[in-house]
């Protein structure tokens, strides 16, 4: 599984290598419009994703003057559906890149776009009906949980106790946590407790404070997200129990990656779930219009372990995340 995703990622970079050549051939072609619809920047990870989306669109617009991009961000599913309908009705898009806010409500509207003969790329969260999209680009939630779980398994003594902070209750969160639990199965590591920190610093801080009151001994924390990791670290510091436990976040926030680079003992590693995956999706959709290579299929970008040794290559100082 891990091997296959790595191979896909390799194939992806190979395709991108073709980009420059294809661009020359398409100079005076007709204008194509690509709509990009993503959730708005309500928390750190989405903030990073928004930044990468804007960054990529700017870059693509320069490289391919005949491509035009329409970006819309939505705070909820209903707004996202309206955004997509507007793109169809008023901007006459030829392709759509969509990161569905929720799977169920977006399935029918995106299917309608597909039926109108447009090219559809779905990012990260799959639609509830298979076979609609031409291209699927996603992070690997199962791997995200599994990689973290394996690290806990390999680096904790048997009999160790850990606590887990979960995200906002969603399928995505369930997949991660189930994979994490599966990876720990059979080990002597005990999960003391799990609570929802909602991918929010303040909520994670509160939950961690209560965990610290409740459990006199905690050896490690899986915070599952770097925003939550920051709140957790602060709560641990306030209780003066920094020496007792380490914390694994997730998604590769630049501040956290920096601390891993610097060898912070409290933050040994991190698991990627890069917000940059939206860039790959936009780039591949663009290629579909400017090259003759068919850009269809499923591309799963695996989650990797960031260690002090390789942290440098995951550090994007310009990104807000």
């Amino acid at each position: 599984m891990k091997r296959r995703s790595l191979m896909k990622a390799a194939a992806l970079s190979a395709v991108m290598g073709l980009t420059a050549g294809a661009a020359l051939a398409q100079e005076e072609a007709e204008k194509k419009v690509i709509g990009v619809s993503i959730p708005s920047a309500t928390h750190g990870f989405m903030g990073g994703l928004n930044w990468h989306a804007q960054d990529t669109i700017e870059r693509m617009g320069k490289v391919y003057p005949n491509l035009e991009f329409v970006l819309a961000t939505a705070g909820d599913s209903a707004k996202q559906v309206s955004d997509i309908e507007d793109m169809m009705a008023t901007r006459n898009i030829d392709g759509l890149v969509v990161l569905p806010f929720e799977s169920e409500p977006l399935t029918a509207p995106v299917a309608a776009v597909k039926e109108a003969g447009k090219f559809v790329t779905v990012v990260d969260r799959g639609l509830s009906q298979e076979g609609i999209e031409d291209l699927y680009v996603a992070g690997d939630n199962t791997a995200f949980g599994r990689v973290a779980g394996q690290y806990f398994r390999d680096n904790l003594e048997p009999g160790s106790k850990i606590v887990v902070l979960r995200g906002i209750p969603t399928t995505l969160d369930n997949e991660r946590v189930e994979a994490f639990q599966a990876a720990l199965e059979g080990s002597e590591i005990e999960i003391l407790d799990m609570e929802h920190g909602n991918w929010n610093r303040d909520d994670a801080f509160t939950v961690m404070q209560d965990f610290l009151s409740k459990y006199p001994e905690i050896n490690a924390v899986w915070a599952a997200d770097d925003d939550m990791a920051i709140g957790v670290l602060e709560a641990i510091a306030a209780a003066g129990r920094e020496e007792e436990m380490w914390v694994i976040g997730g998604a590769g926030m630049k501040e956290i990656v920096k601390r891993i680079m610097d060898g912070d003992p409290q933050l040994p590693v991190n698991v990627t779930y890069p917000p940059a995956l939206i860039s790959a999706a936009i780039e591949m959709t663009a290629l579909n219009f400017v090259s003759n290579a068919p850009m269809t299929g499923r591309f799963i970008i695996g989650s990797q372990l960031i260690t002090p040794e390789n942290a440098e290559q995951f550090h994007f100082p310009d990104s807000p995340y």
Binding site: T42, H43, G44, G47, W199, D202, F205, E234
Partner: peptide, 11 residues
């Protein structure tokens, strides 16, 4: 407390 503020502060 956290030394930071973001779009999700005080929701």
């Amino acid at each position: 407390r956290l030394g930071s503020a973001s779009g999700s502060t005080g929701v």
